[in-house]
Lab assay of single mutants.
Amino acid sequence: TTYKLILNGKTLKGETTTEAVDAETAERVFKEYAKKNGVDGEWTYDDATKTFTSTE
């Protein structure tokens, strides 16, 4: 399943996707990605669109 991440950081904005077996796995991948890029925001998830959003 393809999951999408929308980053709305103070210094980094953008989108990326990952293939994962479930939302929990995708969330771990995306949170590590955000951390590596210095984004520490509030997380939301929309199951209908398989989209995570992190907003600082």
Score class of each variant (00 low, 15 high):
residue 19 E to L: 14
residue 42 E to Y: 13
residue 8 N to D: 11
residue 28 R to V: 08
residue 32 E to S: 06
residue 14 G to K: 14
residue 4 K to S: 05
residue 43 W to N: 00
residue 50 K to H: 12
residue 3 Y to H: 03
residue 22 D to G: 03
residue 56 E to S: 06
residue 41 G to K: 02
residue 18 T to N: 02
residue 53 T to S: 07
residue 29 V to P: 01
residue 18 T to D: 02
residue 4 K to A: 04
residue 24 E to Q: 12
residue 14 G to N: 11
residue 54 S to W: 15
residue 50 K to Q: 09
residue 27 E to K: 10
residue 35 K to D: 07
residue 44 T to P: 00
residue 20 A to Q: 06
residue 56 E to M: 07
residue 49 T to A: 05
residue 10 K to F: 14
residue 4 K to P: 02
residue 56 E to K: 04
residue 43 W to R: 00
residue 34 A to C: 14
residue 5 L to I: 03
residue 29 V to T: 10
residue 25 T to E: 14
residue 20 A to P: 01
residue 43 W to V: 03
residue 11 T to S: 11
residue 41 G to S: 05
residue 52 F to M: 01
residue 40 D to G: 08
residue 25 T to C: 08
residue 38 G to W: 05
residue 49 T to I: 06
residue 20 A to Y: 02
residue 24 E to V: 12
residue 32 E to V: 07
residue 44 T to K: 09
residue 2 T to V: 14
residue 10 K to I: 15
residue 34 A to Y: 02
residue 9 G to K: 03
residue 19 E to R: 11
residue 9 G to C: 07
residue 30 F to V: 01
residue 43 W to K: 00
residue 30 F to Y: 01
residue 56 E to N: 05
residue 47 D to Q: 10
residue 29 V to C: 09
residue 53 T to R: 06
residue 45 Y to G: 00
residue 27 E to R: 10
residue 55 T to S: 10
residue 37 N to H: 15
residue 21 V to A: 14
residue 29 V to I: 14
residue 54 S to D: 04
residue 1 T to W: 10
residue 38 G to E: 05
residue 14 G to I: 15
residue 28 R to W: 08
residue 33 Y to L: 06
residue 45 Y to S: 00
residue 14 G to Q: 14
residue 46 D to F: 03
residue 3 Y to I: 02
residue 6 I to G: 01
residue 14 G to Y: 15
residue 23 A to L: 10
residue 42 E to V: 15
residue 24 E to D: 12
residue 47 D to Y: 08
residue 2 T to F: 09
residue 50 K to A: 05
residue 34 A to H: 01
residue 20 A to E: 04
residue 1 T to P: 06
residue 40 D to Q: 12
residue 46 D to P: 00
residue 30 F to K: 00
residue 18 T to W: 08
residue 35 K to N: 09
residue 51 T to H: 01
residue 48 A to M: 10
residue 26 A to P: 00
residue 11 T to Y: 15
residue 31 K to F: 05
residue 16 T to E: 06
residue 30 F to R: 00
residue 2 T to M: 12
residue 13 K to T: 10
residue 11 T to K: 10
residue 37 N to C: 14
residue 55 T to K: 07
residue 33 Y to T: 03
residue 21 V to M: 12
residue 14 G to A: 15
residue 21 V to Y: 12
residue 48 A to F: 11
residue 36 K to P: 01
residue 15 E to H: 10
residue 15 E to C: 14
residue 31 K to W: 05
residue 54 S to K: 03
residue 56 E to Y: 09
residue 40 D to E: 13
residue 16 T to V: 15
residue 15 E to L: 08
residue 54 S to C: 15
residue 55 T to N: 08
residue 5 L to S: 01
residue 12 L to I: 14
residue 12 L to H: 14
residue 41 G to H: 04
residue 33 Y to F: 11
residue 39 V to S: 04
residue 22 D to V: 02
residue 44 T to R: 08
residue 41 G to C: 06
residue 32 E to M: 08
residue 29 V to K: 07
